[in-house]
Each structure stands twice: as C-alpha cells, then as structure tokens.
Design a protein around this nucleic acid. Sequence first.
DNA 1: TTAAATTGTGTGTGCGCACACGCAAGAAAA
DNA 2: TTTTCTTGCGTGTGCGCACACACAATTTAA
Lengths: 356, 356
Amino acid sequence: MNKRVTIKDIAEQAGVSVGTVDRVIHDRGRVSAEVKEKVLQVMQALDFEPNLIASTLAFNRAIQIGVLMPQLHSDPYWDLPLLGMRRAQQSVKHYGIGLFEQMFDLFSPQDFKKSALALIDQKPDALVFPPIFLKESMELLEHCAEVEVPTILVNTDVEHPQVMSYIGQDSYQSGVLAGKLLSTVMNGSGKVLLLNLDKESTNAKHLMDKEQGLRHFLAQKDPSLFTVLRQDVEDFDNPERLEALLKGLLQQYVDIKTVFVTNSRAYKLVEAIQGLSQAHLPILGYDLLPNNLHFLQMGKIDFLINQNASYQGYLAIKNLTDFFIFKKQLPRVQHLPLDIVVAENAAYYLQREQGN
Amino acid sequence: MNKRVTIKDIAEQAGVSVGTVDRVIHDRGRVSAEVKEKVLQVMQALDFEPNLIASTLAFNRAIQIGVLMPQLHSDPYWDLPLLGMRRAQQSVKHYGIGLFEQMFDLFSPQDFKKSALALIDQKPDALVFPPIFLKESMELLEHCAEVEVPTILVNTDVEHPQVMSYIGQDSYQSGVLAGKLLSTVMNGSGKVLLLNLDKESTNAKHLMDKEQGLRHFLAQKDPSLFTVLRQDVEDFDNPERLEALLKGLLQQYVDIKTVFVTNSRAYKLVEAIQGLSQAHLPILGYDLLPNNLHFLQMGKIDFLINQNASYQGYLAIKNLTDFFIFKKQLPRVQHLPLDIVVAENAAYYLQREQGN
DNA sequence: TTAAATTGTGTGTGCGCACACGCAAGAAAA
DNA sequence: TTTTCTTGCGTGTGCGCACACACAATTTAA
C-alpha cells in the first residue's frame, strides 16, 4: 500500500513550496523556467496523480450545464434523453454539477431560437442539445463559440468546431441492421414497406440514412429478391388514414412481407391497423417506449431496435462530468449500441433505461 | 443556487457543536436522547445531504476489494470479468478503492480453496468471486460470515446470507431467447442441436437452465414442429473428434437445422468443422470473444448472445464503490441484458467491452 | 467517601488541493 | 534617483467532514 504522492511530496523533493507546485500544475505562470522544469521532472519521477477528490472539494465551484430539449411530454421519444440527463445529474450532483433546463416546442424553429438565447443568458458552463433545426442550431453553435461554451450534441450530429462531442445513434448502420433482421424473417425474398411516420425536416437526415442502410444491405444480399417501398406519412396521428393507406398498399403490393417503421412511432401503426384482420405482418420499429413494449410483448411488433435514447442523455451529463471534474478528453463521436430487442430480452433493457 | 447544507449549518440550527452532529450522523453514541432527537429533526428540516466528496477525503482510508478469479488467460471467457474489474478500479481509484487479486485454477476445487484462504488472510474489506465450485464456495461464504466480509457473486448465484449481491446472467431466459432466435431461422420446423462444450460440473447449473429455457420456448411454440437434441462434449479441445461427432450427427439426424452452443466456445465448433463442406448451418453461441467475433463477421456464426461478462466485473467493483463510498443499498440480484449480437451491430458492443 | 468509569459535549487537527495574499528583488518608468 | 511594475516565490486559509482528544458532569465501583 504505497501511499499516494501529493503535491507536498513534490514540493519537498523539488525543494520548493506547495504554492509553486500548484502554479506549475495549473500553469498560472510566475514560476522561473528552471524551477518549473525541475518540478515537472519530479512530478514525472514520482508519477504524481492529483487527488481529484481533494481537488473538487477545494475547487468548490458549481458547474452549470445548460440543457436545451423539446418540451417534456410533447413526444414520448424525447422524454427519454431528458430523463436520462436528470438521472445522471442525480448521480454526479455531489461534484457540484447542476442542470439548467430549457424546453422548446419540438416543431417550432422560432421557439428553439428563443429558448436557446434564454439559456445562453444564464451563462452555463456547457451546453447540451439536439440540433433538430439545422440553421438555428448552427447559429447557436456560433453563439457558443463567441462566449466559449463547450457543447455536446445528442441525437443528431453536425460539423462545427464548437462541438466537443456527439452522442447518439448511427442511423445508417441501424438501417443495415434492420435489413439484416427483416431479411431473416422474410424467408428468402419479398418487399419491405418502409414507413416514415414523421413531419418533413424534423429528422430528415436520420430517416434518409436509415433508408440507405436498409437498401444497401438488401442490395448486397440480392437486389432481385428484396425490394423496398417507401412511404412518407406526415399525418401519422390520424389512425383512419393510416389504416386506409396500409390496406391499400397491401392490396396493391401483395409481396409486402414486412414493415420497417423508421422511428419510435411503430405503436401508432399497430394501433391504426388493429382492425385489419389478416396474416401476421412482421413489424420492426425503434425504441423502448411503453406503447412499443406493450405491442412487443403482445407479438404485434417483432423487433425493436433500441437507440438508447435515455442513455444518450445520461452519457452526455456523465461525459461533461468527466470533462470538468476528471479532466478527461472526450471522443468526438460516441455511437451507442444498437440493441436488438425482442419480447424475450426486453425486460433487461427496460430496467436499464430506468436505472442506469 | 441555494448553497448546500453542511453539518455546520445543522450544528448552528440545533444549538450544538459540529462534533455532536457528527456523532449523531455516525451513530457513535455519547449524545443525549433529546439532543439527538433535536439534531435529527434539524437535519430533516434542512434536508441535509452529506458532502460525499468531503466525506471520502476526510475518511482517508483505503478500501481493499479481494477478487478471486480463474487464472488469467486460462480460458478466454474468464478473462473478461477480471478485465472489467480492473477497468472499474482505474475509474474509482481516487476514492481509495484497491484490488487484491488472487487467481485459481479453473478446474481445481482444491486450488480454489487454497486461494480463497490466501485472499481472506489479506483481510479485504469485501470479496468478489464466481462460485464455480459449489461446496467450496459455501465454505468460503461461511468463512466470510465469520470475519464479516460482505461478498458479491458474479457469473453464478448461490443462496447464502453473506451474499450481498449477485451480478450476472439469467441463464434460463437466455435459453428462451436462444429458442426465439433459432426458431426464426428454422423456417417453421426442425431440430436444434444443443452442444454443451464443457467439463462436467463446472457450469452444470447454467447449462441445464439454458437447455430448459430453450425447450420451454420451443414447446410453447409447437412441440410437434421443434425438437432438441442434446450432446455433451467434455473433449472440446479435440477438433477431430468434434468434427467426427458432428458429421455423424448430421447424417443420423437430417432434420438438424441449427446448432446452439451453450457457452462461449462456439468458435471451437466452427474451427473443428471448417472442412465439412455442406450447406450453411446456422450457429448460435455466447459472448464476444475475439474468435467468436471473427467467425461472426465471416458469417460462420449467426448470432451471439452477449452475457456482458466484462461488464459483470465492471459492475461488481462499481457497486462496491457505491456501497462503501456512496452508502447505497445494493439490489440482491442484478441480471445483465442479454444482447443479441449479429455482424451488423457487433462493433458497438465490442467498443463497450473495451471502454465501458 | 473516594476513586474510577461512563456519559455528554466542545475543540482542534488533518485529508489534499485551490487560490488569495504578502513580500522581496529586480526591471522599467517617471 | 525615486517610484511603480513585474517576476518569483512562500504562507495561510478554507472546502466539508472524520475522528482524536480534552474536560466537565454524572454515575458506578471500591
């Protein structure tokens, strides 16, 4: 049990005071070149690792993380990352990490902009948000650059020097994975109905990437056996229209063997076609929303790909703690696992979503 | 930003000294009933949460966790939890958490016993081990009870009052999951060849549970369509015998449509039957060993169920940190997710195994 | 009845570090 | 030359808590 090396040890060994060592460590200047060199040398020799516990205690400053997220309960998917962040905050609050939450209307770029400004006004030490609206997000990042606020993006990535880290899904690959799963249930050939149940522009990039991934996978398997039919539905909250649409498509294209819902709204499809009595139509969707899980257990949904939305939020806060408290470098991109969830292993993921 | 409540605040409010508050908090006695009551009341009223950072700093005592694991590199599976523990230790070492590692021969109960005694002699503050040998493990737990060392089990659970927590897989459910996956690739009917590539007794319980899970799932689907053929192979390190065995079985039972390798040794099967030229035989195995992943990418293995062996070790250490440092209650049982890993989503899990 | 043990309380020190301040010596400006 | 700045160091305090110790007031034992 060799005791840990402290700055006091360094000071003694180097023949200086702890104050000087401190100045070297924090590069505060006011140290002669020779002394600085000597101290660094001793630190190296003794393999000094600062005691982060003592450090944070002495630092004694609150770190406020600004969080800009869609209004809670406006969409079940978007609740997940926010709840993950709150859980993470609970577990790191003793480091003095706090959250400023600012919500915006999921479908209003103007509100996003307004909320962003309100948040920046609070002078947070860091910022976390999903760049749902590209133009407004770039403006926000510019603003962050000016006031030097490091930023973590969740859900969607965007290229900008101010972005310290992106935490989220790999949409293309999740399309590939969907292709793999769907092809195993299609018995050799058939058509995949790809349903985008989303408003234009909100997630355009992700949806396109998923489609690409799916198509590439199926093409590489055998383009003559597998085909894809895409259908965009902005009016996804209208069950009657959805049912009619699907009924029509299934009549028109008898080789539709399976449905790929490209976001977390598979449950809306299932709800809409409850009445449609016909042979089981395998459905693949995304994310462990309560409604999705319900239909998964009932056998109405066959696969869910879990994008770990809750964990995205959790990680964002954890990473910022690593950055501020433990002085760690963060990776520019962190893709989360694409969990394949079926009825038989859903319980574990659900538990994790809630507990972390 | 309402400042956090400190024991000093409590002391002032209660009209006593901080020493007294301290005695109340730690229940050290030497406080009159009325004063104690008053202090507790004030703590409640001010919603006092101790500053764990300051607490661990002042506590200033190393906590040593005894780790009893199979010899490193004796079996690729068993490396994973140990490496997970080491990673976890790195990330919590500033709390003064250290590991005493003691290795034992995976196939020798005597050596297990000897190593256990050696470890206990070091007087660790807690103990982590997989109860591979039931009898010897119960003895060890008795010993732990005497010297009052709390214990966390990994990989396998055992009922004993001294067991604070079990972290591991749910074998039965993983058999169910295997059944689900295999039935989707069997196209409606067929025989599953269940291969236990293990020495008697080492993991008997797990293997039986998995078989049960598989059988129950298939029976509930349709017992007339799906059958299971079990084959135990202790001599799994002999590729020739393995190849001959499989060849024979495939000739004898032409309806074998898929193979379920019940532990991490699927790669041994694949290596053995490389030569066997025949139609693709879907294989399901366990765990993200390098060899397994290699064959997964090549398409020789179709599914791996990830039991998160590395994460088991990681969690064990993390949980003990929560227990000792953050005074958290631990759940008696923590089942880890059963990740379904295919070539298309393997990368993420691999990354996590290495990084956590 | 006196000595010894116990109970109830306050004070003080240290954990390792961050940071403000003080102070001397030399450099630059007046 | 005197004054003001700058550079290069050391000292001191505090972060919030754990724990040892001191000491008076009892209570118990001898």
